[in-house]
Every structure is written in structure tokens, then in C-alpha cells.
Write a protein that binds this DNA or RNA. Structure first.
Length: 279
DNA sequence: CGCATATCCTGACTGC
DNA sequence: TGCAGTCAGGATATGC
């Protein structure tokens, strides 16, 4: 569901279509989406604010506003941001929880069937515009250098399954279940490999796989699964799902060697792997 | 510390 | 065809 590539795709769309716009009014209709603060404070903080820029760290988006505060968004499982031209006259789809009216008559809507997603406004922002609420996040592989030495250090600091480390946002920010499996496949490492057994050469492969898989997925505008809710800002879908080597492909032939892809459970999550290619 | 489990929630899918 | 049950997953909390 939305992981780093999907969130980055939305960020690029927001930079193109929303940066420079002013929020005329905010309307919170859902009960759970704005939960870190009083919805009235949320709407008051957004009224008349101009969007200066949009950043991302891991799976979090943050729009810097002209009073140096930031609107922070996390899509979680099923959230999406939809930009609707001529918004006020266009019916809201089900599960629309927050609507921001913009000064060009469009609406930026937060739609989220499962209501795990979250929006909040914070003035607790670093000079570079990063909200302090995101301070605990680890390395973002597309913003910060992620090389073999950093992966060696991350791997050396914990004793767990490789997949569990990849899903830990305090280590590497932005990887979720789908890309975690694709990264392990690319690195030719089993997702249930113990971190303490990863060699220097394998750490190097892993670092390359993280950056390469995520970069390719961004270029393909992310993955939209069959059941999935992920859509970009204009409702379009991604294309990277057609290039998944193992995720969701249990029983299908491995694209590298032809062996059947297996499904196992690691850290409470379904994981897909090729038992021949990944060691 | 690691790791499993439960929680939040809806919709898609499975099996009867 | 319909309906109940299961599963999906991001982050977080809790218990072992």
C-alpha cells in the first residue's frame, strides 16, 4: 500500500499542482483522521495558509506553510490524496474525511476507507522545514546516502530477521511489506536471514537493492495492487506491480530461475521469496 | 532486547 | 446467490 515510491509519486504531484496554492478553508468530516489535535484547531491552522513546498521522509509527507508550520500526512494502509478540479461541485467519494478548498476552486481531499491514515498541523518544525514529529525516522534511501557501510552498521546493531529490519522505520524509512520482499529478492537474500549473519558483501548488495528497487518503483509511479486503494493525486494508478518479481506471486515461477515462489510468514507479515535464488 | 500478538478498519476474497 | 469468516497491512502498544 502506500510505501516510499507511492508517497514520493504523490509528493511530486503535489509539487506540480498544489505548491503555490492557498488553502481557503478546511473541512474535517471524518472522526479519526485528525486525531492528534482538536479538528477545530486543525482547520483554523490551515485557513489562509499558502503551501510553500512539499517534502517527504519515509512514508510521511509534509507541506510547509507560509507561517513556518507544516501539514503532515501519513496515508497508512488505504489513504489517498485526491485533487479535484472544480471541487465544490463534484460529489465526494465515500470515506472522504478531510477536504481542503484551494484558491483556484479545486479541492484537495483525503480519502481513506480504513481510517488508519492521519493528518495534523504542527508548528514544531526545524529550520530546514522538517517537523520534529518525524525525528525518530531512519535513513530515507532516496534523500540520504545509503551505502554499504551504513547498511553494515544498521545490520550490526540488531539481531533479527532481515525483513524485520527493513520494515523498521527507525532503521530505514519508507520500506513496507511489498518493497521489503522485492528488495530481498534483488539482493538475493532470504527475508528471514538473520541480520547477524549478513556479510560485508551482502550488506553492499542490500544497499544497492534498496536504492535500485525504490528508484525504479518511483519511476513507475508506484504499485497499485488488485485490491488496492493506492492512486496518485489525479486518481491514476502505478505500474510497478507488473514488475514485482516475488510479492504476491506464490506458486508462480521465479523470474530469475523458474523455481516456484514461496510464501512464508516473517515478523507477522506474509513474505514471498525464491528458495533457490535467495540465500 | 527481540518477537509475537492485538488493535484500529473496510473491502476483497474464500468456502460453504 | 448469499453470507459468514478470513485476510490484508503501517504503526504502535503490550506482554512474554
Amino acid at each position: 500500500m502506500p510505501e516510499l515510491p507511492e508517497v514520493e509519486t504523490v509528493r511530486l504531484d503535489l509539487v506540480r499542482d498544489v505548491v503555490g496554492r492557498t488553502i481557503v478553508a478546511a473541512d474535517v468530516t471524518g472522526r479519526r483522521t485528525v486525531r492528534r489535535q482538536d479538528p477545530a484547531a486543525f482547520t483554523a491552522a490551515l485557513a489562509s495558509r499558502r503551501v510553500e513546498s512539499v517534502g517527504r521522509h519515509g512514508k510521511y509527507l509534509f507541506a510547509r506553510l507560509d507561517d513556518a508550520s507544516a501539514l503532515v500526512a501519513h496515508l497508512r494502509m488505504s489513504g489517498s490524496l485526491q485533487l479535484v478540479a472544480g471541487g465544490a461541485g463534484v460529489g465526494r467519494e465515500p470515506h472522504t474525511h478531510v477536504v481542503l478548498a484551494l484558491d483556484d476552486g479545486s479541492e484537495l481531499r483525503f480519502v481513506d476507507p480504513r481510517t488508519f491514515g492521519e493528518l495534523f498541523v504542527t508548528a514544531d518544525v526545524a529550520p530546514d522545514g522538517r517537523p520534529h514529529a518525524l525525528a525518530a525516522l531512519g535513513v530515507d534511501p532516496l534523500l540520504d546516502p545509503l551505502d554499504a557501510s551504513i547498511v553494515r552498521e544498521l545490520v550490526g546493531r540488531r539481531r533479527t530477521a532481515l525483513k524485520a529490519m527493513l520494515l523498521d522505520q527507525r532503521a530505514i524509512a519508507g520500506v513496507g511489506n511489498i518493497y521489503g520482499d522485492e528488495i530481498c529478492f534483488r539482493a538475493r537474500l532470504r527475508p528471514d536471514r538473520r541480520t547477524e549473519s549478513v556479510s560485508a558483501g551482502e550488506a553492499s548488495r542490500l544497499a544497492g537493492a534498496v536504492v535500485d528497487v525504490l528508484t525504479e518503483a518511483v519511476a513507475a509511479r508506484g504499485s497499485t495492487l488488485r485490491d488496492a486503494r493506492y492512486r496518485d493525486l489525479r486518481g491514476g494508478h502505478g505500474e510497478y506491480q507488473h514488475r514485482h518479481a516475488v510479492y504476491g506471486r506464490a506458486g508462480e515461477p521465479c523470474p530469475r530461475c523458474g523455481r516456484a515462489v514461496e510464501r512464508v510468514r516473517i515478523a507477522g507479515r506474509s513474505s514471498f521469496l525464491c528458495p533457490a535464488c535467495q540465500r
